[in-house]
Computed example of a mutant assay.
Amino acid sequence: MLHDNTNMLAEVGRLETPKLSGKYDTGQLFLHRVFGYRGVVLFPWLARVYDRDIPNKKESSLDESSFNQVGKEVKGCTQTFYQVLIDARDCPYIRAQTESVTFLGNQDSSRSLYAIPGLDYVSHEDVFPYTTTEKVPLQHELFDKFLMYYPDKDPPFGAQETLRAWQKKNHPWLELSDVHKETTENVRVTVIPFYMGCRESQSTTVFWWRYCIRLENLGELTIQLRERHWRIFSLSGTLETVRGRGVVGQEPVLSPHLPAFQYSSHVSLQAPSGHMWGTFRMEREDGYTFDCRIPPFSLESKSEESVPPTSS
């Protein structure tokens, strides 16, 4: 199998047949179906996927009725996702932020924002497994801390105790529980929300979430994201509107050749729960513009029992 990330081809291993059932084990090497990077599976998650494309429903308007969809029942099905490490050599060429896993640490009663580089969440269908004879096939600072080479295993890499301890300690902040999907005019939006923790002061408590968004162009015409329009509802009763150009300082182009873009952002509420929904204004190469729906998703906090213990 050949891999290309700098217009130079390099042999990295031999592709295997993707699994149609079951799950991949810790240490499985893979290529990402959409972004093409090399990665390795750390551990699996079972997530509830709410796909709004599955029910046969009438197109609804994009005004306040979009908020009404928040409470509309959309059946979720359980699917396997994976926490993975990304090969550092591929990070500069991925149309996705590669430091998207963040959480609030709990140390000396002062919580700081931690970012873990080179981590991603990957659905089972996006994994193209491969094997290699290299003992260190991936360049990542955590690879040899988390994984060990076992020549008689399949895959030949297994978890070290440091990986199990890291997973246990940070489980509440790494946990992927809900995934939301919706397609508008051949543009699919996938949202994964994560609870990050809360910050307390004498007068108020602020709850924080991060959310990862992937945009995929499933059509044949090139499109560009021009604007975002968010509605953020807090359990405290407030409804906030946020408008702006692009996302994370970019107006990404989604072409048939490079059809996907992924980014992460953060939101805070002065309440333990809320909802978010909205639209992206897209412009097609023929000049046609349309609003692409962002599926409504819940922001739910977790009990303080889930907070990792303070470091000594």
Rank of each mutant, 00 (worst) to 15 (best):
L85P: 00
T17N: 10
F261L: 02
Y288E: 15
S123D: 11
G27E: 05
L174G: 06
P309G: 00
L119Q: 06
T6M: 13
L113V: 12
K19C: 05
L15C: 11
G219Y: 04
L29G: 05
R48P: 01
R48H: 06
M276K: 04
R284S: 12
R89A: 14
T78W: 07
L254D: 00
L235M: 13
E141K: 10
V191T: 05
H229R: 09
F35S: 08
I223G: 01
N186Y: 06
T183P: 00
F103Q: 02
H171C: 04
P129K: 02
T162H: 08
A271P: 08
L221K: 14
N106I: 07
L235W: 08
D4N: 15
R284A: 11
T162G: 05
T238K: 14
V41F: 05
P308V: 06
K302M: 10
D144C: 14
Y211M: 02
L147H: 04
S268N: 10
T80L: 09
R52F: 14
T131P: 02
L299K: 01
V191I: 14
P137Y: 06
Q97G: 13
V187L: 14
D120N: 03
T98H: 05
G237N: 12
C198Y: 05
G249L: 05
L235K: 12
R48E: 09
E141G: 10
L176C: 06
R52N: 10
T184Q: 07
I294V: 15
H32M: 00
H124N: 07
E200S: 14
V248C: 12
M8Q: 15
P137W: 04
Q107K: 12
F157A: 07
L85N: 03
Q28H: 09
L15G: 11
Y82S: 02
T131L: 04
Q202C: 02
K23A: 15
L225H: 05
S255D: 04
T238Q: 13
V187Y: 07
P155N: 11
E182L: 04
P55F: 02
F81C: 14
F233V: 14
L163K: 01
K145L: 12
N68F: 14
N7M: 09
L221I: 10
P92L: 01
C212G: 11
Q28M: 13
L176M: 04
R293G: 05
L218D: 06
Y195A: 05
S60I: 15
S177C: 01
M1W: 11
I232A: 08
H180G: 03
D25V: 08
T132C: 06
W173P: 01
I54H: 13
V127R: 00
K145D: 13
S112L: 03
Y263W: 15
G118K: 07
F143D: 02
A165F: 03
G71Q: 13
E11N: 11
V34C: 12
E200H: 05
T102W: 03
N5D: 14
I116Y: 09
Y263P: 08
A96T: 01
G197C: 09
E251I: 07
K58G: 07
R210K: 15
K23S: 14
R14D: 15
T162Q: 11
E161G: 04
